[in-house]
Simulated assay, not measured.
Amino acid sequence: MGKLTAPAIVERALRIGDTEGLDAVTIRRLATDLGVTPMALYWHFKNKEQLLIGMADHLIANFAPEPADDRPWQQRLRELVEGLVRVLRAHPCARTVLEQVDQEDVPSYLTVWNEALGLTHAAGFADEECCLISKYLLHSAISIADVPVHFRPGHTDEEIAEIVRVKRLGLESLPADAYPYLVRMAGPMVDCPPSLYDSFGVDLILSGIETLAARRS
């Protein structure tokens, strides 16, 4: 292969993490897959902790907030959250990666976090409130991107249909007198379109922030 680069290493690490889980991501495994010696990887990442930071940075670097402009803060904040959900949802291992690093060590995460702080400040919140809202907001985006409604790569359409059918039947089989709404709503509970799940989740989070902001004005 050509010259080994840090982006090539983290991209391969993310592919392994997505398909086999993060425990399968080791320096030795990466070296084997990339056709190099472990020492060649240590030149870029001295240990797995640094590799995880590199993976986290690469994940979020695929989303760059738009430069500040004259659009309302509500529109820019929505764009921030939707963009973060979109890039993280492309990698099933994203949440696990972000949970295993100190997010303050991830430059691209700091960029998004700083943008969230600036937008909530523009909405009229006090500094302490901006800090809390930005944390809730970013962690909510990470959680939305990780929900089971998004089936992992490797499942065929037939397998997904069977998973949904079994889950739906499980809820429909509950005692209706004890769980009337779970039984009634079994279909949409287990078969919510991913796009609806994401958009409704973002709406729910942002509407709360907008309501609080309106009380400040």
Rank of each mutant, 00 (worst) to 15 (best):
A13K: 01
G35N: 10
A31G: 06
F45G: 00
E49N: 11
Y42Q: 09
A40S: 12
G2I: 01
L51W: 01
M55S: 01
V36A: 06
K46S: 14
T37K: 10
M55T: 07
P38R: 06
H58K: 13
A31H: 10
D23W: 09
L30K: 07
R28N: 11
T37D: 12
I53K: 06
I53P: 07
I27F: 03
V10L: 01
P38C: 03
G2M: 04
L59P: 07
T19A: 15
W43T: 14
H44Q: 00
I53W: 12
H44F: 14
Y42P: 04
K48S: 13
V25G: 03
P7F: 11
L22A: 08
L14D: 01
L34A: 11
K3Q: 02
V25M: 04
P7T: 04
L52W: 11
Y42E: 07
L51R: 01
A40E: 03
I27E: 13
E20Q: 15
D57Q: 02
M1R: 11
K48T: 13
L30A: 05
W43N: 05
I9A: 02
V25H: 07
L14T: 04
T26Y: 11
L22R: 04
A13G: 05
T32I: 04
L52Y: 13
G2A: 14
L59G: 13
K46D: 09
I9D: 00
A40R: 04
I27V: 15
I16Q: 04
G21N: 14
E11I: 00
E11T: 00
L22E: 08
T37W: 00
R12S: 11
A8D: 12
D57E: 08
A13L: 05
H58V: 02
A13M: 05
Y42K: 14
R15M: 02
A56Y: 14
A24F: 10
L59Q: 06
V25T: 10
I53E: 12
A40Y: 12
K48V: 09
K46P: 06
H58M: 10
A6W: 07
L14M: 05
M1D: 08
R15S: 13
M39R: 12
P38K: 04
D57W: 09
L14S: 03
L59E: 01
F45I: 03
E11Q: 05
Q50E: 15
G35I: 11
A31Q: 06
T5C: 03
I27N: 14
V36P: 08
L22N: 12
A56D: 09
A13Q: 06
I53A: 08
T19M: 10
L59D: 03
L22T: 13
T19W: 00
E11F: 01
R28H: 08
I53G: 03
V10S: 00
G2P: 12
E49S: 15
